[in-house]
Design a protein around this nucleic acid. Structure first.
Length: 847
RNA sequence: GCCCUCGUGGUGAAAUUGGUAGACACAAAGGACUUAAAAUCCUUGCCGCUUGCGGAGUGCCAGUUCGAGUCUGGCCGAGGGCACCA
């Protein structure tokens, strides 16, 4: 038998698809559209297994939808701005542009080898001025809508990357890329007013039925809406301080208040700047790191002022006012009232400074209630609270207290969000220039649209500190209306680039504007977006914001949610290896002896095998897709990467698994040849429909599994159909039955193994009668069986399975059971007390 | 601390509305073919007794039910997200 030459065949089909522009897409209003998008890659140089998995999942769906006669848009591009290019340039003295372009060209070749059904005519690259000029225009539009502003702000400063990080890019107090401990610095920064849409972004989640709940929950928590009220506290003071406002979610615990605490950045702090003790305290606070550990062990510290705050519910109660290290200026109002009995932080603080601890909430019907080392935050009823006593906590206590405060002008109902505005300035060269210039007095002005794009200058010398653009004096100059200005040298956060690229794909050829409205209104929203869960908050929330920002007040464009469906795939993992000196080793440096023992390739030492972890260069546990594709072929790789685990979970790379997928393609090829021989034999027409049942069941199963993203089960279906056909090969099935059903089987396989299927379909030689291939329509009637497996249970235990005609009734079934010695043996002569009978399925007899 | 998700063989995993637990695959052991190896194919899979059969069994403990991997409550464990958020 001829072996399957994947190199030749895959190459043949990839060339054909490219030549025929098989995957190019254009608007066709007679067809339903399907926009299938995978998160575009950063062009690091080579594709990795994560890309293979991501793009294979997307490709299966795109090809499936195409077969179902959808008009499919399946584009690809490059998220090509960002720090690695700049770092590489610094190290190797080449331009980020050249480095990036070379990487793109390599990775494009590799992606093409996977046989993806991508419309490459729509390819975009965010570092091209053809792309970012539109982004600069959007920036100006958002500026005009009041969604861009500049303010001096404390920022997360990464001392290694010498740049500002968004809050989301700070993980455990460290820079997400450099891992350096982040410092607090005050800088002038540009912001997108994402908080304007806090409510919309939160409520919009409810409509996203096609998103995983996990991601929706994460975004919900990130936006962090809380319901409470603002309370005005009158202050007794020798200074010009009359009132301090606090935000609280628990106004009902007001009678338990024993102090008021302010952030050291609170406006009132200015009255204490001259006090050296305050300065010392403030410094102490800034030393407390932001890491998880340091916060956990951080002691509650306070600086006592002479101020007294008056309890608004009882003017005779006066409590001291502190500055405290645990109060944050950028949440709420930077001031809180302390209720030690019902807040752990307040309790810790009160114990340290010996403040009064008055419980005001107790469990219902409990009389001897005391607070020791743990604050009570559960439900209950109010006590020690004068006119509020007895109210049910929290259902009655909170609204009734707010009512009282509002009626007496002491406070007002207020919702609050954790979400903060998006700081978009980066002190970096390799990013989109911000279309802003400054006059001599450093006032910002917009750069007019006709001067766009503001292109990045070519830079070869990266031996300067900080942002290279700062040193480009010629570039910085710009003439607007005859006057000289200095350009902004900060560039945009690369998350801005990826916040609208899905719109650009719809109109990638449009040079006048970022997109055409008619294109957007046809293609958007993205029907299925596929990518890593690591973007659950940042990228997805920013993209949602961008849609709100662009569509606001825009009558031509009213799509608020960019991604109708979202699928987050798991990572590709591999065992890790270390030598005796604890150096990481890559899988090719290892040999496996007898399946258990691992040795270094030169057999000089034994290797320590570590747990399977997500593939990463630092742990050297990567497998190079290019090498694997060359060795096994794209179809086999696609088959394997889907086979072992459900796509939302992590998958283990296994050489044995890869090898068995490869062999399976070979086996399918052998089967294909055998089938062609059977067809050639031209058997007379046969009434048995075994093949049709197998094909129909297969198509039905695969279709369900594609639609549910159960891609691992699709591969199981492939193995099943293979062995089922093998069993009926010699059934003397006639030519037409073979062709009709085998063609359908091949079409059903084609989304996963497109090269193999195309080749086999061609060899079936049915092209003359079939112009275009569509997903087979199944006739489910074939699956209706005349016999069914009846489960016979006694006392809930399965004692036998009877293959019987469908539609049999209880009495007939019991007669059959009595004929079955084995089952009868379990009943013996006991009386049957009860029978549960489920037609065509099961009988349970209780004895 | 709060929120979310998940616990099924040696391993990755299947199991419509509660109805034959372990599909499909990997590994291992045994067998067939072969002078031999590779490749291929078959069998086994936890505990008993010779085949066959019987028993236990989906993290643990209860409950609902004729029947629970699936539903309810409690506990234990793993992973992820958020975090002095007032």
């Amino acid at each position: 038998m001829e072996r399957y030459n994947f190199k030749e065949i895959e190459n043949k089909w990839q060339k054909k698809w490219e030549k025929d522009k098989t995957f190019s897409s254009k608007i066709d209003k007679n067809k339903k559209k399907f926009y299938c998008l995978e998160m575009f890659p950063y062009p690091s140089g080579k594709i990795h297994m994560g890309h293979v998995r991501n793009y294979t999942i997307g490709d299966v769906l795109a090809r499936f939808k195409t077969l179902q006669n959808y008009n499919v848009l399946h584009p690809m591009g490059w998220d090509s701005f960002g720090m690695p290019a700049e770092n590489a340039a610094r190290q190797n003295e080449l331009s980020p542009k050249d480095w990036t372009e070379e990487n793109i060209s390599n990775m494009k070749t590799q992606l093409k080898q996977l046989g993806l059904s991508i419309d490459w005519d729509r390819e975009i690259s965010t570092c091209s001025s053809d792309y970012y000029k539109h982004q600069q225009e959007f920036f100006l539009e958002l500026y005009d809508k009041g969604l861009v502003y500049r303010k001096e702000n404390y920022v997360n400063w990464d001392p290694v990357d010498k740049t500002v990080l968004a809050n989301e890019q700070v993980i455990d107090g460290k820079g997400w890329r450099s891992g350096a401990i982040v410092e607090r610095r005050k800088l002038n920064q540009w912001f997108f007013k994402i908080t304007k849409f806090s409510n919309e972004l939160l409520n919009g989640l409810n409509e996203l039925d096609g998103w995983p709940n996990k991601v929706k929950t994460m975004q919900k928590n990130w936006i962090g809406k809380s319901y409470g009220c603002e309370i005005n506290f009158k202050i007794e003071s020798t200074k010009e301080i009359n009132e301090i406002k606090c935000y609280t979610t628990r106004p009902d615990t007001l009678f338990g208040m024993s102090f008021l605490a302010l952030s050291v950045d609170h406006p009132i702090a200015k009255f204490y700047y001259s006090d050296p003790n305050f300065q010392k305290f403030k410094e102490e606070c800034s030393k407390t790191g932001t890491t998880e550990e340091s916060l956990a062990i951080a002691e509650k510290l306070g600086f006592k002022t002479e101020l007294l705050a008056i309890n608004p519910l009882d003017k005779s109660i006066k409590v001291p006012v502190y500055f405290a290290n645990f109060v944050l200026m950028d949440y709420g109002l930077g001031a809180v009232f302390g209720c030690p009995a019902h807040d752990q932080r307040d309790l810790d603080f009160a114990k340290k400074y010996d403040l009064k601890i008055t419980p005001v909430v107790k469990p219902i019907n409990e009389d001897n209630f005391i607070i020791e080392n743990k604050a009570y935050t559960e439900d209950g009823e109010l006590f020690n609270s004068k006119f509020l006593n007895g109210l049910k906590v929290p259902s009655d206590s909170i609204p009734k207290t707010i009512d009282y405060l509002e009626k007496n002008n002491l406070g007002k109902k207020q919702t609050n969000f954790r979400l903060k505005d998006w700081g978009i300035s980066r002190q970096r060269y390799w990013g989109c220039p911000i279309p802003i210039a400054y006059d001599k007095k450093n006032n910002p002005v917009k750069i007019p649209k006709d001067l766009l794009p503001i292109k990045l200058p070519e830079i070869k010398n990266f031996n300067t500190s900080g942002n290279p653009l700062d040193h480009m004096n010629d570039w910085k100059k710009i003439i607007i209306d005859g006057k000289e200005y200095t350009k902004e040298t900060d560039t945009l956060d690369t998350f801005v680039d990826s916040s609208w690229y899905f719109l650009r794909f719809c109109s990638s050829d449009n040079s006048n504007y970022g997109f055409r409205y008619e294109d957007i209104n046809y293609w958007m929203p993205v029907d299925q977006y596929i990518g890593g869960v690591e973007h659950a908050i940042l990228h997805l929330l920013y993209s949602r914001f961008f849609m709100h920002a662009l569509s606001e007040d825009n009558r031509k464009f009213n799509i608020k949610e960019p991604f109708k469906g979202l699928f987050t795939q798991g990572m590709v993992c591999h065992e890790t290896y270390k030598d005796q000196n604890n150096n990481w080793l890559s899988p090719d440096e290892i040999i496996n002896v007898n399946g258990k023992k691992f040795l270094l390739k030169d057999r000089t030492q034994e290797i320590k095998v570590g747990p399977s972890e997500s593939m990463s260069k630092s742990k050297k546990n990567t497998i190079d897709p290019e090498k694997i594709i060359n060795e096994y072929g794209a179809d086999a790789v696609r088959l394997f990467i889907l086979s072992d685990s459900p796509p939302e979970k992590d998958v283990q790379w296994s050489d044995e698994g890869m090898n068995s997928s490869f062999k399976f393609v070979q086996k399918l090829w052998i089967l294909n040849q055998k089938i062609l021989e059977e067809i050639k034999k031209d058997h007379p027409k046969n009434i048995k429909n075994d093949l049709e049942i197998i094909a129909t069941q297969f198509i039905e199963n695969v279709q369900n599994n594609v639609e549910n993203f159960s891609y691992n089960k699709i591969i199981a279906n492939f193995y099943e159909v293979y062995s089922a056909i093998n069993k009926i090969l010699n059934f003397k099935i006639d030519k037409n039955t073979w062709i009709k059903n085998y063609l359908n089987i091949l079409i059903t396989m084609s989304p996963v193994i497109p090269h193999f299927s195309s080749e086999c379909i061609e060899k079936l030689d049915v092209n003359k009668s079939v112009n275009k291939i569509y997903w087979p329509k199944v006739n489910k009637d074939v699956l209706i069986k005349d016999k069914v497996n009846f489960v016979v249970q006694i006392n809930g235990k399965t004692r036998g399975v009877l293959n019987l005609k469908t539609g049999i009734n209880e009495k007939e079934l019991i007669n059959k059971i009595n004929e079955d010695k084995k089952i009868k043996n379990h009943i013996k002569d006991k009386t049957i007390k009860k029978i549960i009978f489920i037609p065509d399925k099961l009988i349970n007899m209780i004895i």
